[in-house]
Computed example of a mutant assay.
Amino acid sequence: MMHGWGHGMGGFFGGGIWMMGLFWIAIIAVGVYLIRNSNNSNNRTERIEGKSVEDPMEIARQRYAKGEISKEEFQEIKDELLK
Rank of each mutant, 00 (worst) to 15 (best):
residue 51 K to W: 00
residue 21 G to F: 13
residue 2 M to T: 10
residue 18 W to R: 08
residue 36 R to E: 12
residue 21 G to V: 04
residue 44 R to I: 00
residue 3 H to Y: 09
residue 3 H to I: 14
residue 74 F to V: 04
residue 11 G to K: 14
residue 37 N to M: 04
residue 73 E to M: 11
residue 36 R to G: 05
residue 65 A to G: 05
residue 24 W to Y: 14
residue 57 M to F: 10
residue 7 H to T: 06
residue 34 L to R: 08
residue 69 I to G: 10
residue 22 L to W: 04
residue 46 E to K: 03
residue 33 Y to Q: 10
residue 3 H to T: 14
residue 62 Q to Y: 15
residue 7 H to Y: 05
residue 64 Y to K: 15
residue 12 F to K: 02
residue 2 M to N: 14
residue 58 E to S: 13
residue 37 N to S: 06
residue 81 L to Q: 04
residue 9 M to C: 07
residue 34 L to I: 13
residue 34 L to W: 08
residue 31 G to C: 03
residue 73 E to P: 04
residue 53 V to Y: 12
residue 76 E to V: 00
residue 16 G to T: 02
residue 47 R to F: 04
residue 1 M to Y: 08
residue 19 M to C: 14
residue 38 S to Q: 07
residue 26 A to L: 13
residue 19 M to V: 13
residue 14 G to F: 06
residue 43 N to M: 03
residue 9 M to R: 11
residue 7 H to V: 04
residue 33 Y to C: 07
residue 67 G to Q: 15
residue 44 R to V: 00
residue 82 L to H: 11
residue 3 H to W: 08
residue 7 H to P: 00
residue 45 T to F: 05
residue 39 N to V: 11
residue 33 Y to V: 03
residue 29 A to I: 11
residue 81 L to I: 14
residue 26 A to I: 04
residue 82 L to M: 15
residue 9 M to D: 11
residue 16 G to Y: 01
residue 49 E to M: 09
residue 11 G to R: 14
residue 15 G to Q: 07
residue 58 E to T: 09
residue 8 G to N: 13
residue 23 F to I: 05
residue 32 V to T: 07
residue 36 R to P: 01
residue 38 S to Y: 05
residue 39 N to R: 09
residue 78 K to Y: 09
residue 81 L to H: 03
residue 1 M to A: 02
residue 12 F to H: 08
residue 47 R to W: 00
residue 62 Q to L: 14
residue 3 H to M: 10
residue 34 L to H: 12
residue 79 D to M: 03
residue 79 D to N: 15
residue 83 K to N: 06
residue 4 G to L: 13
residue 29 A to D: 12
residue 67 G to V: 01
residue 61 R to K: 12
residue 17 I to Y: 03
residue 71 K to Q: 10
residue 66 K to W: 01
residue 78 K to V: 04
residue 49 E to W: 03
residue 80 E to Q: 14
residue 29 A to P: 06
residue 38 S to N: 08
residue 53 V to K: 11
residue 59 I to G: 06
residue 63 R to I: 03
residue 15 G to N: 11
residue 53 V to E: 03
residue 73 E to L: 05
residue 60 A to H: 00
residue 29 A to V: 13
residue 60 A to I: 04
residue 53 V to M: 01
residue 46 E to W: 00
residue 33 Y to L: 12
residue 78 K to P: 00
residue 25 I to T: 08
residue 35 I to H: 10
residue 30 V to T: 15
residue 28 I to L: 15
residue 72 E to V: 09
